[in-house]
């Protein structure tokens, strides 16, 4: 964690050393400010303000946790996928999500936070993940709705993050977004197939869209007048558009696509505002959002327990791998 030692000033320094450290900080800050002004990139070894580092660790690790917890509602349908082709696609998709979690944990690790610690924070309930994954995937059509709406909202959120000022995060997002757009298309295709299938299949699709609509819109975070961290993140070129801006844009995209699906969105207040040239949607239940965020969603306990269970059941395996690697290294150095 060499980058962090650059920032903390150890005790008992000589006045000269203190002065040197202060100069180093001032130079670092000047460089950082210039990078922000030029809308360029900060890399892991560059000086950065402690709050910037902390914000990024929080955001990137939350994002990673969302990928890992987000595997669960979809993994729930791997064994029951109704065709072998769909089973293969779903397996590949959930596997991609594990991959996204890995890139993101790695990006956060470049900021000095070890993956084990992030995992522990998740299992201890200290770290957050996207609330949407605390809702259950009840039917096969949820695989379509999750792909189309949840991954769709994620893409709307993440495409601007490809330009995030922290290099490793922006680069991870480029790859993640490519795969996410694939995921969204497969979700759309599932719904399209269902909505043009039997009446039962179409009903299944409509009910899934109804259930996931509001939670998907709430993925963009609280309304702008209730989003305390947004302003600083925008100043740091991490966030590029406000929550409401992204949400409205997403509603507009869904309005077009839902027509092709021959389904409806469960919101009679959606309209295009001719004055602002923006899409608007009906009221959302933010009380429910905050309740789920606090842990009182339908599946919060289940999701975390499943993660803990996998982690604990795997402890002896990880210990074995570490012990074996150590023994091999000893053998090699003895040889």
């Amino acid at each position: 964690m060499a980058t962090q030692t650059l920032q903390s000033v150890p005790a008992e320094l000589t006045p000269e050393q203190l002065e040197e450290a202060a100069r180093h900080e001032a130079e670092g800050q000047a460089y950082f400010d210039r990078v922000m002004a030029e809308d360029s990139r900060i890399e892991p070894r560059d000086w950065m303000p402690a709050a910037y580092r902390k914000t990024l660790i929080r955001q990137i690790s939350q994002h990673a946790h969302s990928e890992i917890i987000g595997m669960q509602p979809e993994a729930n349908w791997i064994s029951r996928a109704p065709s072998l082709k769909r089973k293969a696609i779903l397996m590949a998709k959930v596997q991609d999500e594990a991959g996204h979690g890995l890139y993101l944990y790695s990006a956060a690790e470049t900021l000095g936070q070890p993956r084990d610690q992030m995992m522990q924070d998740l299992m201890d309930g200290k770290a957050k993940y996207s609330s949407i994954f605390n809702y259950p995937a009840r039917t096969w059509a949820d695989m379509g709705a999750i792909g189309w709406m949840v991954d769709g909202a994620a893409i709307a959120n993440q495409v601007p993050l490809c330009r995030a000022s922290f290099g490793p995060y922006g680069r991870a997002m480029v790859r993640v977004c490519k795969e996410e757009s694939f995921h969204q298309r497969q979700g759309f295709e599932i719904l399209l197939e269902l909505s043009h299938g039997t009446p039962e299949q179409k009903q299944m699709a409509q009910e899934a869209v109804n259930r996931w609509y509001a939670p998907a819109l709430m993925m963009f975070g609280p309304p702008d007048d209730d989003s305390p961290n947004s302003k600083q993140s925008m100043a740091w070129n991490i966030k590029r558009f406000s929550n409401d801006e992204l949400r409205n844009r997403f509603v507009g995209m869904m309005m077009e696509q839902v027509k092709v699906l021959d389904l409806t969105l469960p919101d009679k207040d959606i309209r295009f505002n001719e004055e602002t040239k923006k899409w608007e949607h009906g009221p959302l239940d933010w009380d429910e959002f905050h309740e789920v965020l606090k842990g009182r969603g339908p599946c919060n306990a289940q999701r975390l327990e499943r993660r803990r269970e996998a982690h604990e059941n795997g402890t002896w395996v990880r210990e074995a791998a570490a012990a074996y690697a150590r023994k091999q290294a000893e053998k090699e150095s003895a040889a």
Partner: peptide, 22 residues
């Protein structure tokens, strides 16, 4: 094998066992 996806001892194994299942 598909059952292991999201339950493996390490994320790397979620991916590896998922790959073998695929």
């Amino acid at each position: 094998l598909g059952h292991w996806i999201s339950r493996a001892p390490e994320l790397e194994e979620d991916i590896a066992l998922g790959n073998i299942a695929l």
